[in-house]
Design a protein around this nucleic acid. Structure first.
Length: 645
DNA sequence: CTGATTGACGTTTTT
DNA sequence: CGTCAATCAG
């Protein structure tokens, strides 16, 4: 195997195959290369591919890594290495044994939207007004507790203030209703896997045997549970290689703890530590300001990136009177560079802190007729018709999934009114049976009309038939969905809902795209199934609506948050909105030093995305709720520029 | 039961 | 300035 393309440090990381290894890899130092070469090396050394596990941060990264590794090996592999995110890995583990924990074999994963409405309902149930605790706050509390492994029962003792106390009651109720409906949220995937490992040693042993070598990318972003899961998995052999950069830890708010990467050598005694400090991505000017910026953080591994590329352009700091002009001029410059200087559009990225910022840029890009992709927005799966269809699929997967059933029980209208639905639901909850089972009794006791009862029974038998069909022909998912749509005559429903012809056409086109995306899913999946599909849709970054994936590969300006830019690189980067209150964000300015440090790392991540050209812009005044307000320059700008502070 | 209008209210990041 | 939920009129 040819390792001549690697520098000595990279080679050392690749060739230390056994025992714990910590690779401290700065931005742009080739850490993904190290992991892929390492996997190829392991396979060449005779380790069966399917005993290698590599954990990535996103599913997209996993996909890329698999392709690259296969490229290195040259020939196609009979067995594939396991490359996936923590969450997808846990789904696979749970799928085999979740029944041990009292969950149904056919569990469903709730997505963000479901989670929010559940949180809202929980708060209503325990009579907490949104003023004292917002649904979003409840969810982030729950997520934080779950990521430290705290169960609802123990949380009340730990609550530190009123909000947390209310939150602890909410948590208990939230968890009860999730479990009662046989659903798990993102954090449960990890939490339940840990429970499984703790409570069932034989299950753990099975998985320990399954993997002989484990690698983790973006190690700085692992949280407590993830750390414990991995620690348990590698306990017998300790063949663990983690790769990360403490300066790029930007998920502290989600429970990620830098201490795992800072303390790795301590946790895993005898660990080999390799530093990668040769940066091949950015010009020296860019590395300069990145180093200067991050020096302001304490509590970090001391590394200094060395650039290998001389700059042709200076880093630019530009100020505009307001955010409108910021968008106009940035887009104008991109258009100029593209049309007059021949820079392809795919070279450009506009990075920002919040999801509200891109709006103006989108308008401007459209006005100046430049193709663009807004990454990370999940608008495609948020469309009503797609959601409806997904709910059909979820009910087909598990007939008892009432949350999903409620959404579509009368869409299209089939004579089951909201009041009848309510009656059925009440009864079902009261006696603890699925809705389907209480229809006859409800009819007999006059709760619902015979017509509604008949409709419900008909729907039930339809669902049972669909379930059979989907179970029997998993490889024809797309065609089954297509015929499902025809059977329920969803087209007519669209015509009913939307009066304008234009709307109807657009919505129908969306559905068509959607069916096509299922076909694509089948093509790229070795063992397609309804369950696998549903988890994929929920877990994968869904920015790749069918049209978007094409756009992303095509020539288009990319717009994304700093968070979603992690791990990517672009020749020409614009970091916009470099203002106090935006970056660092207002909420952290009022917070602790540690939170500011995380914002600084976020800025660092942004800066180090740029390969050739970096432009940092800010608006002197920014509109907030209609009124313009002065917006002071971000402190990070001074830190980057100032020779010393 | 649908559709339109009003009014309160809000600021982060995502697997 | 937008969004979204609650409210009201048809």
């Amino acid at each position: 195997m040819d390792l001549s393309g690697l520098n000595p440090s990279q080679r050392e990381a690749v060739e230390t195959l056994n025992g714990p290894v910590l690779v401290l890899a700065g931005a742009g130092t080739g850490k993904t290369r190290v992991i892929t070469y390492r996997m190829a090396r392991l396979i060449r050394a005779g380790v069966p591919a399917d005993r290698i596990l590599s954990v990535t941060f996103t599913n997209k990264a996993a996909k890329e890594m698999l392709e690259r590794t296969q490229g290195l090996i040259g020939k196609s592999l009979k067995k594939r290495p396991w490359i996936s995110t923590f969450h997808s890995l846990c789904v696979k583990i749970l799928r085999e044994d979740i029944t041990h924990l009292g969950y149904p074999e056919r569990f469903t994963i709730v997505d963000r939207g479901d989670q929010e409405s559940l949180a809202r309902k929980v708060l209503r149930d325990i009579r907490v007004t949104e003023k004292s605790l917002r649904p979003g706050d409840l969810l982030s509390l729950i997520s934080r507790w779950k990521s430290t492994g705290l169960s609802p029962e123990r949380v009340a003792d730990v609550a530190q203030d009123d909000k947390e106390f209310l939150g602890s009651m909410g948590y208990r109720r939230y968890q009860q209703s999730l479990k009662a409906s046989g659903s798990v949220d993102f954090d449960d995937l990890l939490l339940l896997t840990e429970k499984l490992f703790d409570g069932f040693p034989d299950v753990l042993a099975r998985h320990q045997e399954r993997f002989s070598h484990v690698q983790i990318d973006e190690y700085q972003d692992t949280n407590g549970i993830q750390f414990r899961l991995i620690e348990a998995l590698v306990r017998p052999h300790r063949n663990l290689c983690v790769v990360g950069d403490d300066d790029q830890s930007i998920y502290g708010w989600r429970g990620a703890e830098v201490k795992h990467i800072l303390g790795f050598a301590h946790q895993f005694e005898g660990a080999k530590v390799v530093r990668l400090e040769e940066n091949y991505r950015c010009t020296d000017r860019i590395i300069d300001i990145a180093n200067r910026l991050v020096k302001h953080n304490r509590d970090r591994h001391n590394k200094v990136l060395r650039a290998h590329k001389a700059a042709k352009e200076e880093v630019r700091f530009v100020e505009f009177p307001d955010e409108q002009l910021e968008a106009e001029k940035v887009v104008g410059e991109i258009r100029f560079l593209h049309q007059k200087k021949g820079h392809p559009l795919r070279d450009f990225a506009i990075l920002f802190r919040t999801n509200e910022q891109p709006r103006l840029f989108e308008t401007e890009l459209r006005r100046q007729q430049l193709p663009y992709v807004l990454m990370g927005s999940q608008s495609f799966y948020d469309r009503k018709e797609i959601k409806d269809l997904l709910c059909y699929l979820k009910v087909i997967w598990r007939l008892e999934d009432e949350q999903s059933l409620l959404r579509i029980i009368n869409t299209p209208p089939r004579g089951i009114s909201t009041s009848a639905t309510q009656k059925l639901l009440d009864r079902a909850v009261r006696i603890g049976e699925p809705i389907w089972k209480v229809v006859d009794a409800a009819e007999a006791e006059g709760d619902i009309t015979p017509k509604a009862a008949e409709a419900a029974r008909r729907l039930h038998s339809q669902f049972r038939r669909w379930q059979r069909e989907f179970d029997e022909r998993p490889t024809q998912l797309d065609r089954l969905v297509q015929s499902l749509l025809e059977e329920i005559d969803y087209d007519r429903e669209l015509e009913r809902q939307y009066k304008e012809e234009e709307q109807q056409v657009a919505r129908k086109a969306t559905l068509e795209d959607y069916v096509n995306s299922i076909a694509e899913y089948i093509d790229r999946t070795s063992e397609p199934s309804l369950h696998d599909y549903l988890t994929t849709v929920v877990l994968e970054r869904r920015d790749e609506g069918p049209d978007k994936e094409a756009m992303a590969n095509a020539d288009a300006v990319k717009l994304m948050t700093l968070h979603s830019a992690k791990g990517l690189e672009f020749p020409r980067v614009y970091m916009v909105g470099m203002e106090e209150g935006l970056l660092p964000h207002k909420r952290t300015v009022e917070g602790t030093e540690a939170e500011i440090a995380e914002e600084r790392r976020l800025a660092y991540v942004g800066v180090t995305r740029a390969q050739e050209s970096l432009t940092l812009t800010r608006a002197a005044s920014r509109r907030k709720w209609g009124k313009p307000r002065p917006s002071p320059a971000s402190r990070f700008l001074f830190e980057m520029r100032g020779s010393d502070d």
